[in-house]
Design a protein around this nucleic acid. Structure first.
Length: 914
DNA sequence: CGGGAGACGTA
DNA sequence: GTACGTCTCCCGC
């Protein structure tokens, strides 16, 4: 541990954590074999352990209240007079805890006559003067008064940090107004008098109006109503309340803050104490020499946030109706609970329910096995009975459900006639909205990141690869632990992540107003699926197959030998070694590239590349689409059901898998034919509505560039308008080549391109490209300003945001590696536009879904989303007027400085609808 | 059998 | 030049 002056000072409010830990139910249960309670000890030590890990360079000092009266009792004899005496089973934990902390080598301060808060305040004050940053670890909100530029709070139980901005966000006032605020409200528990009926709202209102307590007092006669009367009645008391609420900054201490340094731990003493109090995990840590610092976290199989050792969790397997009814009662009484389904497949269309797990509080979970059917599996509750009991609960909007990827669970349950409601919190989306790039958002990764806990992995109990068994085959005891842990961890993840998310208003609103409401909408689209013409695809496969054979023969003839056309490696050998064709470009790994653009160029001079190109294009179409799609038709519905991934794309877009319906060909003639096979059912039409130039419109809006805004509001062809500006010609005089160049620039800007990139794209000289761009920025100066500002902001803040507050972190923006840094800069330019477009279409989907729900007409279905396009299936009798409505809803999904234009097409299939 | 590389489909 | 997913090949376990 570093002792340089730069090490932050970590002040631990031991007393506040002691009381909190004492009241945590699952810690209360802990005791030694002979009955000495150890829950509060465990809680405080775990918290210190977690702090050591979070602040590896931190200089930890632990402070406790001393016994007896303090100066506040002299000031006001009734101070804390209402407090009940400390319970015996807590009192007996204090001395051992102190002993352990001392043995750990940490400075421990217990100063008589003052409270721990005052000691902490004094040390923080001294540290600030000595130029040392301070983090105060406390659960006590009153400490917010100590926050300043160099002092912040961390609530280690919830992992929420609070700096000056955090205080303002949380309380609505500045840290230096907190004492005034506390004085106005008073404190029932500590018996501090305040203004009757004045709570946080009123206190903040007054302080925003009058700045401080003195001014509030001075203006007391102006306050109307009963509350004004209460204020005037309290006037005499308020100065005293202010004094009581003020944390002392000048306690006389024997040691200065610089002198409070950790000593080496006394291992022998610690071993003895850990043994005596049966603190097994700490003992194990000590003996293995593990420090809960960075390296340890990889091997650390327990939770550092709210630690529950595996032997202390209560996971029940529910076999009987009595047990089940007990849990049902608990769930019905709960405001919220975490739950998870266990099934036979990751494919929600094929999955069959094998069991359900629930958690109501951390460490306490149940698994209800329903479909384990291995040989000699124990008797389980009947699935129909269990689901009938649970249906009202799962469909209740009153009881909040917490889950990890609840879209999956909702889809599975819908096959059992349960329409889940009250889908309130999804930890996967919480993590995604908090930081889309920090981790993957699967539960195992989240548990490691946020709880420092290694979960039991599915592979651990089911095996992997071809030998993997399905959940119904897994021994119930093993499965039960795994499943109950899933629910438990989900609950704890929610408790760890959501408070962080709540603090960030933009990201929180994206979560609450976009992602969570979208979840059931996506579930419905997935569930409904898309109809495809299997016969048509089979025909196409056949004719493509025939052509591929011809091409293969031709290629072999040209090459003078047989080779695998779809092996880039073999092709490299033939082209660049055997035929001695010059290498134009290399792959990132340094191999000679055979990419499309290279072959296009080579095709001008040589015969083989042309054949390869046609072969490549067609074999991609065949293997990915015409062969594959028919295999993905569900036996149950006769339709194709994609999965929309809501927590994958860093920018906020959706992605689509199994199959990916967002990359169905459109550009090439042959490719487009595949869209013919996306059809509407009898008497229905396919309607495709897409946003026109949405990202460019967003660029105009975000940059507020007058030229671009005007082009859009006048309804001009924007690429043509851009070309006219760059090339200095009349709108009508723009050539198709000029328009093409302008279009490339417009798109390039969205991608954060350079002159180099533009030159390559247009096949022109670099200085020529630079001239185009200079001209562009001269004509649209605000765009230039916006780009520069975005780059700068990204570098300063380490993230960029969309119009609606979705945040994308760019860890590589400060990379020493120029290529990575430039890459991050381009992403920084692109993300606000791509991300805002994603936000907009998601909002449009919500509005559309709501409208469709209101119509209550089964003849209207939203079936696909492709980034800037929504695809519907609508009965022919109503298709015209419904389409008109949908366009209108999409156009008005959000309000920008430019018109938002959606364009619709109607047809018997997706190709026609374009 | 799993996973990286290279290619290519979309917005 | 942005953001994705899926295919085949092919190496290495």
């Amino acid at each position: 541990m570093s002792n340089t002056p730069l090490s932050p000072l970590i002040l631990v409010d031991g007393s506040s954590y002691l009381f909190r830990a004492y009241h945590v139910p699952y810690l209360q249960a802990l005791s030694t074999a002979d009955g000495q309670p150890t829950g509060a000890i465990t809680g405080v030590l775990n918290m210190i352990r977690s702090l050591k890990k979070d602040y590896p360079n931190g200089n930890i000092v632990v402070v406790f209240d001393a016994k007896g009266k303090t100066f506040r009792n002299d000031m006001y004899p009734e101070y804390k007079a209402n407090r009940p005496p400390m319970p015996d089973d807590l009192r007996t934990q204090i001395a051992p805890l102190h002993e352990i902390i001392v043995a750990m080598g940490l400075p421990l301060l217990v100063i008589e006559g003052v409270e721990a808060d005052d000691v902490i305040g004094t040390l923080a004050h001294q540290a600030t003067q000595a130029g040392i940053e301070t983090v105060i670890s406390t659960g006590d909100k009153d400490m917010a008064q100590l926050v300043n530029e160099h002092v912040r709070l961390i609530n280690t139980m919830t992992n929420v940090e609070m700096d000056v901005a955090g205080v303002i966000e949380k309380f609505g006032i500045r840290p230096d107004q907190i004492i005034d605020y506390l004085a106005l409200m008073g404190d029932k528990v500590d018996n501090i008098p305040g203004v009757e009926k004045c709570g946080p709202k009123t206190a903040v209102k007054w302080l925003l109006e009058h700045e401080n307590l003195d001014n509030v007092i001075a203006n007391a006669d102006k306050v109307k109503g009963k509350i004004g009367e209460n204020l005037r009645n309290a006037l005499e008391q308020l100065p005293l309340s202010y004094q009581l609420a003020t944390i002392k900054l000048d306690v006389e201490l024997e040691q200065s803050v610089e002198q409070l340094q950790p000593k080496d731990p006394n291992k022998a003493k610690l071993t003895e104490l850990y043994k005596q109090f049966e603190l097994r995990r700490l003992l194990a840590d000590l003996q293995s020499g593990e420090q809960p610092a960075k390296e340890a976290s990889a091997n650390d199989d327990e939770d550092a946030n709210v630690v529950i050792a595996p032997e202390n969790v209560d996971y029940q397997i529910v076999y009987t109706q009595e047990q089940f009814n007990h849990w049902l009662e608990l769930l019905n009484k709960a405001e919220s609970f975490a739950f998870d389904t266990e099934t036979t497949s990751l494919d929600y269309m094929k999955a069959e329910l094998v069991g359900l797990s629930f958690a109501i509080e951390p460490g306490k979970a149940a698994y209800v096995p329903l479909g384990h059917d291995y040989q000699d599996a124990p008797q389980q509750l009947a699935i129909d009975w269990v689901l009938a009991q649970l249906k009202p609960l799962l469909e209740s909007t009153k009881i909040a459900k917490i889950g990890q990827n609840l879209k999956y669970d909702a889809n599975v349950l819908s096959h059992y006639d349960i329409k889940m409601q009250g889908i309130a919190f999804d930890t996967m989306l919480e993590s995604y909205c908090l930081n889309s790039v920090a981790t993957r958002h699967n539960m195992d990764a989240l548990a490691e990141k946020y709880l420092d806990y290694k979960t039991v992995h599915f592979e651990d109990i089911a095996g992997k690869g071809a030998k993997q068994i399905t959940f119904n085959q897994i021994d119930i005891d093993k499965a039960g632990h795994y499943a109950a842990e899933d629910a438990d961890i989900t609950l704890r993840l929610h408790q760890a992540i959501y408070p962080k998310l709540e603090k960030l208003s933009g990201q929180h609103s994206v979560y609450r107003e976009i992602e969570m409401p979208l979840l059931p909408v996506l579930a419905r689209m997935e569930q409904h699926g898309v109809l495809i013409d299997v016969d048509l695809l089979a025909e196409q496969s056949q004719s493509i197959g025939a052509r591929l054979q011809e091409l293969e023969v031709e290629a072999h003839n040209i090459a003078g030998q047989s080779f695998n056309l779809s092996s880039p490696k073999q092709l490299q050998k033939i082209l660049f070694e055997e035929l001695k064709i010059p290498v134009i470009k290399k792959t990132p790994k340094g191999a000679p590239s055979t990419a499309e653009e290279v072959l296009q160029e080579l095709a001008l001079d040589y015969p083989l590349p042309k054949v390869i190109l046609e072969n490549r294009g067609l074999s991609k179409l065949k293997s990915t689409y015409t062969d594959k799609l028919p295999l993905m038709v569900s036996e149950k519905t006769g339709r194709v059901h994609t999965s929309y991934q809501q927590a994958v794309a860093a920018t906020g877009r959706l992605s689509s898998t199994d199959p990916n319906l967002q990359n169905i060909p459109i550009r090439s003639e042959e490719g487009r034919k595949i869209r013919h096979a996306f059809i509407a059912p009898t008497d229905h039409k396919i309607v495709a509505i897409d946003y026109s130039q949405i990202e460019l419109r967003i660029m105009a809006h975000l940059s507020d560039d007058p030229g671009l805004l005007a082009a859009f509001s006048q309804g001009k062809d924007v690429h043509q308008a851009t070309a006219a500006e760059i090339f200095g010609v009349e709108l009508e005089q723009v050539s198709s080549d000029q328009r093409r160049s302008a279009k490339a620039i417009n798109f390039g800007l969205i991608y954060g391109m350079s002159a180099f990139g533009l030159a390559k794209q247009l096949g022109i000289a670099r200085n020529q490209a630079q001239q185009y761009m200079d001209k562009y920025f001269e004509r649209y100066p605000s765009i230039h300003g916006y780009m520069e500002e975005t780059r700068q902001k990204a570098t300063e803040q380490g993230y960029v945001e969309t119009l609606f507050g979705r945040r994308l972190y760019l860890p590589e923006i400060k990379s020493k590696n120029a290529m990575r840094r430039k890459g991050a800069e381009r992403a920084a330019i692109n993300a606000p536009m791509q991300g805002t477009a994603a936000d907009i279409i998601k909002k449009a989907m919500l509005a559309v879904d709501q409208w469709i729900t209101e119509q209550n007409d089964k003849r209207i279905k939203m079936i696909m989303q492709v980034h800037d396009e929504l695809i519907f299936e609508i009965h022919q009798d109503i298709v015209e007027q419904v389409t008109e409505q949908l366009v209108e809803i999409m156009n008005s999904a959000v309000e920008l400085n430019v018109p938002l234009i959606a364009e619709a097409g109607i047809g018997d299939n997706w190709e026609q609808a374009h």
